[in-house]
Amino acid sequence: MNATLIASECEARTQPRVVVAGLASCFGCQLQITNAEAHLLEVLGQIDLRYWQLVSSEPLPDEYDVAVIEGAVTTDEAVRTVRELRAKAKAVIAIGACAVTGGVPGMAAAGFDDRVAGTFAGAVPSACGTMRAPKPVSDYIDVDFTVRCCPIDSYDFIRVLQSALYGSNHIEADRTMCGDCKRRENECFYKQGTLCLGLVTRAACGARCVNLGRPCNGCAGLSPDANLEAARATCTAAGVDPNRFDEALQMFNQAALIAAADAARKEAE
């Protein structure tokens, strides 16, 4: 991958060609891109936007440099799409919780096949495609850059897109979120005995929900250094049932939890 030099490589031709594709999602993150209104034209001026699913019904073009993918992979057709995007693009950016962690669609991942069989009794409507358990894009292809959260922050998207175009040594934070709350001097929910997933969630948003008085729901995804055991102990000490903590994690991290459980099972065997 040589994504960081896309801008210079493309200068000779014109500008880096970008496509924005949507999979299983609410399209809210694509909408968030438009919410950078004041700067949207400046951003579009740096790229050659070849395809944007939100605003176009044309098929994907054949050539492009950067693929932006929103949404979880939930069908065989989507698997083919992400593989095609990866094969043709020099850089792949996954945007939003659905694409990055499986997000809300990912909630359906546990016991998926049984539930499909139970619900449709073998007669899955063809509009659904060939369904499979919802998973993040990175389960199928290498993802070079991610824009986290549900929904994404418009300016986060611009920053990450620029990282793909021009390169950046800014590395994605792997610490969890409580430190960001402390920087903002937010009051901790655990002091009031209220569940908050900041304990294990990647510091990707600057504690946005807590800044607004709402506990973290984990939409940025688990930190690779998330210490679930210590977090459960924190819950217990604060009078929060750790089972509720585990349940709450399923909203945005079901896919990661299933993968971790599978790995643990394999290791035990």
């Binding site: 960081t4 030099l5 210079s8 021009y166 390169g167 950046s168 040594n169």
Partner: peptide, 10 residues
């Protein structure tokens, strides 16, 4: 080996 050195190499 990283983003900056990659640009330097170009």
């Amino acid at each position: 080996t990283g983003a900056v050195t990659e640009v330097l190499h170009e």
